[in-house]
């Protein structure tokens, strides 16, 4: 059935000598100048855009983010923090951990074996591959070191971003990070805030099926 369907569909699409009023014209695409912001402006725009979408953004120094992060955790009652030991800051996190903080929970087993934990843990921390200033979005390429569900199942998602990887636009990120040459990851994500919905009377509310909160540490 399927093999036939394929052949039939493709042959129908190929058989067409366009009928109707003349040829099917493809107009030229205008060249649109993208944003060209300085690093500082990119940080500012990203912060503004993310905050509009109810993300919390903290611009911190690369050396000082861990302390600020820990201070933030101390203000909240969390049952644990999901992290990837092989993430760029995994070892630093482990080294800096203290007893009064929520326990560090490594994501090192296949999801099938830790499903309960993944769906019940309060927080998860991930790195980011970059961000987009124009629309406000983080770029995540989940991997073995930082799997896909880390940014989805915990109620609080903390993302750590290197300011140098903030691009003007999505197109620029694809281009400058060589997504094509690199080859696409199994899953790539743009994330612009905590999960939200406006399905009831268009009333915007945050925290539906994904994280209720997104906190972004921009390391400048």
């Amino acid at each position: 059935m399927t093999a036939n369907a394929r052949a039939n569909i493709l042959s129908r699409l190929r058989a067409t000598t366009i009928q109707g009023q003349g040829p099917f014209i493809v107009p030229d695409a205008p060249i649109i100048a993208g944003l060209e912001l300085s690093l500082e402006e990119r940080i500012g725009r990203l912060q503004r855009m993310l905050e509009t979408m109810h993300a919390e953004v903290r611009v911190v120094s690369a050396g000082g983010w861990l302390d600020e992060f820990k201070a933030m955790l101390r203000t909240r009652a969390l049952n644990g923090l999901l992290y990837g030991p092989a993430a760029p800051f995994g070892p630093a996190l482990e080294a800096a951990w203290e007893a009064d903080l929520p326990p560090l929970v490594p994501y090192i087993e296949p999801a099938e074996q830790c499903r309960e934990r993944l769906f019940s843990i309060d927080a998860g921390i991930t790195s980011t591959r970059g961000a987009i200033a124009e629309t406000g979005a983080l770029i995540l390429w989940p991997s073995a070191a930082e799997p896909r569900l880390m940014s989805l199942t915990p109620g609080l998602h903390i993302a750590v971003l290197d300011a140098k990887t903030i691009f003007n636009t999505f197109a620029e990120a694809i281009d400058q990070q060589h997504w094509l040459r690199h080859g696409m990851p199994a899953n790539a994500l743009l994330i612009s805030g905590p999960s939200k919905t406006a399905d009831i009377e268009l009333t915007l509310t945050f925290g539906v099926h994904g994280p209720k909160e997104l906190v972004v540490f921009i390391l400048s």
């Binding site: 979408m53 994501y107 090192i108 087993e109 296949p110 999801a111 979005a137 989940p142 991997s143 073995a144 799997p147 896909r148 569900l149 696409m184 990851p185 199994a186 899953n187 790539a188 994500l189 743009l190 994330i191 612009s192 805030g193 905590p194 999960s195 939200k196 994904g210």
Partner: peptide
């Protein structure tokens, strides 16, 4: 909020 780009199922080394 999310733009989800899926290029393959779970790869050998992936956990989910």
């Amino acid at each position: 909020t999310y733009f989800n780009m899926i290029t393959s199922p779970r790869r050998l080394d992936e956990l989910d």
